[in-house]
Amino acid sequence: MKNLSLILNGILAVAVIYLYVLHFSGGSPAEPEQASNVSTGGIPKIAYVNSDTLLQYYDFFQDKRAELEDKAQKLQSDYETRAKGLQSEITAFQRNAGSMTMNQARALEEDLMKKQQNLVQYQQNLSTELMQEEAKVNEELYEKVAEYLEEYGANQNFKVVLTYTKNSGVLYADDSLDITRVVVDGLNERYNSADAGSSTQNDSTSAN
């Protein structure tokens, strides 16, 4: 009996975020907290976010990752319990088959085969469920980062904000273009503030 593999494949590599923040309102461009040398003359202001660093320090992603891993472990444990139970029934059948009539043995064998098929289907359902939840987290991650970068890019008059990570196709990027730390701090402040506000509201509702 093969064990179910519930590894969260590729979740750390999901946020390949290509955000083209174009045609912001004009005016005197404000200098960002980082990337002070982004623009020269008429060249559009460009910056980048290191997606590996963002994923490592963005509290939302780390919280969701922990939740998914915890759920995967629980589902894995449940599957293994079911698989061991079925294996015990199969072993008992093999031990006692000699004392059964042909009809009894055939009926029990068919029942065990049906249980085995159900277990395989259960395994597939678990994998699908985790993949769907992972996709939902990835979509929410993208939306949160995109929304924040659109606002931040508009304030700093950036025309393009790119992702930069190993194998992204960018061989070199000057550190003056890196706005990762500012973006991570802003995302965490927004996420933790919203989380604290939600907790306060829930406490107030419970008190009433």
Results as ranks from 00 to 15, higher is better:
Ser5Gly: 08
Leu6Ala: 14
Leu8Val: 10
Leu22Arg: 13
Gly26Glu: 08
Pro29Thr: 06
Pro32Asp: 10
Gln34Tyr: 14
Val38Asp: 01
Val38Thr: 02
Ile43Ser: 03
Pro44Arg: 01
Asn50Trp: 03
Asp52Pro: 04
Asp52Trp: 15
Gln56Ile: 12
Gln56Thr: 14
Gln56Glu: 12
Tyr57Cys: 15
Tyr58His: 11
Asp59Thr: 10
Asp63Tyr: 11
Ala72Trp: 02
Gln73Val: 06
Gln76Gly: 10
Asp78Leu: 10
Glu80Met: 12
Thr81His: 11
Arg82Phe: 15
Ile90Ser: 04
Thr91Trp: 06
Thr91Ala: 11
Arg95Ser: 13
Ser99Leu: 11
Thr101Gly: 12
Asn103Pro: 02
Arg106Ala: 14
Leu108Ile: 15
Leu108Asp: 07
Glu110Met: 15
Asn118Tyr: 09
Leu119Arg: 06
Val120Ala: 08
Gln121Ser: 10
Gln123Asn: 08
Asn125Gly: 04
Leu130Ala: 03
Met131Asn: 12
Leu141Trp: 02
Val145Asp: 04
Glu147Asp: 14
Tyr152Gln: 05
Asn157Glu: 00
Asn167Gly: 05
Ser168Arg: 14
Leu171Gln: 09
Tyr172Gln: 11
Tyr172Asn: 00
Tyr172Val: 08
Asp174Trp: 11
Ser176Lys: 02
Ile179Met: 06
Thr180Leu: 10
Val182Arg: 02
Val184Thr: 08
Val184Leu: 11
Asp185His: 08
Leu187Ala: 04
Asn188Gly: 12
Glu189Arg: 07
Tyr191Ser: 02
Ala194Val: 08
Asp195Gln: 07
Ser199Pro: 07
Asn202Leu: 12
Asn202Tyr: 09
Asn208Ser: 10
Asn208Ala: 00
